[in-house]
């Protein structure tokens, strides 16, 4: 008896079709978020504080929303290409008050993040404005792109 294969029959490809569909869905998600540039930002690391990391030429910019945190209670450390942020948010105390709502959280935090490049730790600047922390980290000299001249004879 001859065994006939039907490679082009649709059910032979169900698993690949599902994979294709999944890939298309992911591409669609990426496309949508690239267009809107916002929307529900997923908490990637799940560790407080949530960060936005940007790259601008030879600088890396790290931003975090830290409302109610006194800049003096913040500790920023750079070691190699690891940035560590730690601090504490203290509860606001009002004597003799009763609470109707208490949604704002307090406590301490410690977060480490690996930067995409080595940075120059001596030139790091940090600023806290309206509860938003901005850290500007210039890249280390050796990681900056260098223009290579081509010699012509």
């Amino acid at each position: 008896m001859a065994i006939i294969r039907y490679p082009n029959w649709p059910w032979a490809d169900v698993s690949t079709a599902l994979e294709d569909f999944e890939r298309a869905r992911r591409q669609m998600d990426r496309l949508v978020s690239a267009f809107t540039g916002q929307g529900a930002a997923p908490a990637v690391s799940g560790v407080f504080p949530a960060l936005v990391v940007k790259e601008n030429g030879d600088k890396i910019i790290v931003e975090a929303e830290l409302p109610g945190i006194n800049p003096q209670d913040l500790d920023i450390n750079v070691h190699g290409n690891t940035l560590t942020l730690s601090g504490e948010r203290k509860p606001d105390k009002v004597d003799g008050a009763s609470y109707h709502r208490r949604e704002r959280k307090w406590g301490s935090f410690r977060k480490a993040i690996t930067l995409p490049d080595e940075v120059n730790p001596d030139a790091v600047q940090a600023e806290c404005k309206n509860g938003v922390l901005t850290i500007i980290l210039p890249k280390a000299e050796q990681t900056k792109p260098k223009k290579i001249a081509i010699k012509s004879e």
Partner: peptide, 27 residues
């Protein structure tokens, strides 16, 4: 821009009502 609901604390004392709202980035 998206519009968010800020987290708030509402406290009441004998004389006043105090509302604290987390609104980072707003002057």
């Amino acid at each position: 821009a998206p519009v968010f609901i800020p987290a708030v604390d509402i406290l009441e004392t004998e004389h006043d009502l105090t509302l604290l709202a987390d609104m980072p980035g707003v002057p």
